[in-house]
Amino acid sequence: MTSAVSVSNLRKTYDGKKGAPTVEALRGINLTIAEGDFFALLGPNGAGKTTLIGILTSLVNKTSGEASVFGANIEQDRSLAKTFIGLVPQEMNFNIFEKVIDIVVTQAGYYGMPRAVALPRAEQLLKDLGLWDKRNTPSQQLSGGMKRRLMIARGLVHNPKLLILDEPTAGVDVEMRHEMWSFLRKLNSSGTTIILTTHYLEEAEALCRNIAIINKGTIIINEPMESLLASRGHASLEQIYLDLIKQEEK
């Protein structure tokens, strides 16, 4: 099976600003994510998760190493690699004055999808995510949960093979979170590879089949969720995670 993501010896060093020391955000990580996987990428704040996502999506320039998405190198075949990826970033980044439908359709246009094709696709996604009634509402009038769902609709409008979710349920109430889980499970079972970063560890435990934990720019665990839980006497993922991070600190 093709790997959805393949990362080899990837490094990123941020230059220190105004005399501050340089920061090694990624210290030569290796990672392979299989096609069709539901993959958890966990780690504390500043561990390097967002930098890794940034490199895969071309928002961050890597210092060295290689990365490819469905076999397309992110530098040599950048345009092709990007067509495979849908990104749902951590920060809400849409124009608050624009209508919901316009935000989704405009995004499709950036991927070369004509408006006539994008409109029915956007309609389906907004219906699936319970936002169709709000299609003509300016996005600033949406609730926090609706804004998160809008970001998912926007990330999916061009039919990506890989969906990267960076804290997709932050600030979302429990009921809505479960609805989003159900949507994501269905999406994954239809073949979309999903990478999830989250601080809600029960979310990762409930959804993901494989897991990597990254700390201080290094991957400290990368294995199937089931075997990780079994190897630690079926403790909760939260407990295992805390133990691992504590161990690293020592």
Partner: peptide, 14 residues
């Protein structure tokens, strides 16, 4: 400023 530019940058648009 709003980071809507990121949505263009992650797309395959040159």
């Amino acid at each position: 400023w709003t980071k809507t530019l990121d949505e263009m940058l992650v797309s395959p648009m040159p």
